[in-house]
Design a protein around this nucleic acid. Structure first.
Length: 479
RNA sequence: GGCCCCUUCGUCUAGUGGUCCAGGACGUCAGGUUCUCAUCCUGAAGAUCGCGGGUUCGACUCCCGCAGGGGUCACCA
């Protein structure tokens, strides 16, 4: 376990849509860093682009993190020493620093219209040279009245830095330009305000997704101009979609994390899955609890290459975590996933059903498909025995004989699993049949389902009345 | 196009010069666990370690080049 000074990390999403696994994985790594070092994890909302803001975006962020258990020590709702933690409520702070830069001659008003800028950019493109705003710095910038964008004046300079994940990265002076720090609408840009906030909020490690890596020189230069030390930059590899051809993004159809909750994925499985796209502990351990992640996670073992979001593996991990749960725990989590028919039944019954399907569930939304026959009689489906590879060799009269024999024995049973098992075995001898034939017949008769848990266990849970009633219905059908 | 990052079985990966004609896991296939589904167990197929040079007695591991993929070049974050 890496010992380090308490790290203050943050997750700083913008409320522009539902959180997906790509961005949440970056949040998870930041959270793990804070937890394992005894530091703090902050949530900060970067809502400086009013146009892109989405209704419910903030709620989705909070709900996603809460569901996953990525609790924030400071941030919206919980407050903290550096409140507010919503950027739209911190405008005065950014303006203050912008004014300071302006006063020092480190910032200037941008006199160009959007159209003029575009023309300059097009021209540069046509001439196949990079567009740099600094080549067009106005000689006598207008007095900044807040209606023009304000640009920071940055001297071109090559930067190299030690990235906590990527190692040493070097980028040339062409990556630095006079970027806008305050937009014409009065809001600051991400490039500017996140630096101020990270500094004021004493963030020690900044996790960012890979698309920001070429912006880091700008961030470094801005720190320098402000006279601040940069926090440690941690650039995380990308999470790619199933095609492997693009990073996970909302536009490309990445599913919201909460969709997985709604399908009955477990938060600990999601965390396990996300953590292990791009990180492993170097042993052959394939699955981790949250505590193990906190203990074992290390930056040194985070990959630099991107990883594909493989839902197949998530499914496997989720099944694994479901099986690890105690029955009571699972029962609590499954509450909203039962089929409607189950509402007529009591907790004890539902729990005994759940015990039988626990090892069969990959996700909780499968519950109805696996259990409906426990709660209500399914319509009799002749194809179940007519197409069954063991049973289709026999005619209805023969099946009826065996089923009647079975009914007679079951009628004597106390329906304990032990007694049922014994009787079922006796019936094999009496009828001279293989389990493949007789058990299939009884299973189909009593469930009318294409699949079910073990026969004796299933019968024991169903109970005598229901089991015999269904056998009778099937016998009637075979007549 | 410039710049940056990446490149081991389909996928997630182990691997930091010899123990690797490459190990594990998911997935797939086959068999076993008194029926089905699932679990569990066993086994199989699956990677000439992107390509080409070099360094070295020896390279997946080091160096160079190339190719491919991803990212980025906004009054978006």
């Amino acid at each position: 376990m890496p010992s380090m000074k308490p790290a203050r990390t943050r997750f700083a999403p913008s409320p522009t849509g539902a959180l997906h696994c790509g961005v949440v994985r970056t949040a998870l790594y930041a959270w793990l860093l804070a937890k394992q070092s005894g530091g703090q994890f902050l949530l900060r909302i970067e809502d400086t682009d009013q146009k892109r803001e989405v209704v419910g975006g903030l709620e989705n962020i909070k709900e996603t993190l809460r569901w996953l258990g990525l609790n924030w020590d400071e941030g919206p709702d919980v407050g903290g020493p550096y409140a507010p933690y919503v950027q739209s409520e911190r405008l005065a702070i950014y303006k203050k620093y912008a004014q300071e830069l302006l006063d020092k001659g480190q910032a200037y008003a941008d006199p160009y219209s959007i159209e003029e800028l575009e023309a300059l950019r097009d021209k540069a493109k046509a001439e196949k040279r990079p567009f740099l705003f600094r080549d067009h710095r106005p000689e006598n910038p207008p007095v900044w009245d807040g209606s023009q964008p304000l640009r920071i004046k940055l001297e071109p300079k090559a930067w190299s830095w030690q990235d906590g994940v990527m190692g040493e990265v070097k980028l040339g002076p062409e990556m630095i330009d006079d970027f806008i720090i305050i937009k014409a609408d009065g809001f600051p840009t991400y490039n500017f305000c996140h630096i101020i906030d990270d500094h004021l909020m004493q963030i020690t490690h900044v996790t960012r997704s890979q698309e920001f890596i070429s912006s880091i020189p700008k961030f470094l230069a801005t720190h320098e101009v402000l006279g601040w030390e940069s926090p440690v930059n941690l650039t995380m590899p990308q999470v790619m979609d199933e095609t492997g051809r693009a990073k996970l993004s909302k536009r490309k159809g990445a599913k919201p994390v909460l969709d997985y909750r709604d399908r009955g994925f477990l938060p600990e499985a999601m965390l396990d899955f996300m953590a292990t796209i791009g990180w492993n502990d170097g042993t052959e351990q394939e699955s981790f609890t949250v505590d193990e992640l906190i203990q074992k996670f290390s930056l040194e073992r985070v990959h630099r290459s991107g990883g594909i979001f493989n839902e197949q593996r998530l499914l496997w991990l989720n099944g694994l975590h479901i099986r690890r749960l105690s029955l009571d725990d699972l029962y609590g989590r499954a509450a909203s996933f039962w089929p409607p028919e189950a509402s007529k039944h009591d907790d004890a019954y539902k729990k005994s059903v759940l015990a039988l399907v626990q090892e069969r569930l990959k996700y909780l939304a499968e519950l109805p498909a696996l259990t409906t026959f426990f709660f209500d009689d399914l319509p009799i489906n002749p194809s179940l025995w007519q197409d069954n590879k063991q049973l289709k060799k026999y005619d209805a009269a023969q099946l009826k004989v065996w089923l009647e024999q079975s009914r007679a024995s079951l009628a004597e049973s106390d329906f304990s699993t032990d007694d049922l098992t014994r009787r079922l075995n006796d019936l094999l001898e009496q009828t001279g049949q293989k389990p493949g034939v007789l058990f299939s017949l009884i299973r189909i008769a009593t469930t009318q389902a294409p699949a079910s848990p073990g026969l004796a266990e299933t019968l024991a849970v169903l109970g005598k009345d229901i089991a015999l009633r269904r056998v009778d219905a099937m016998l009637h059908q075979l007549a």
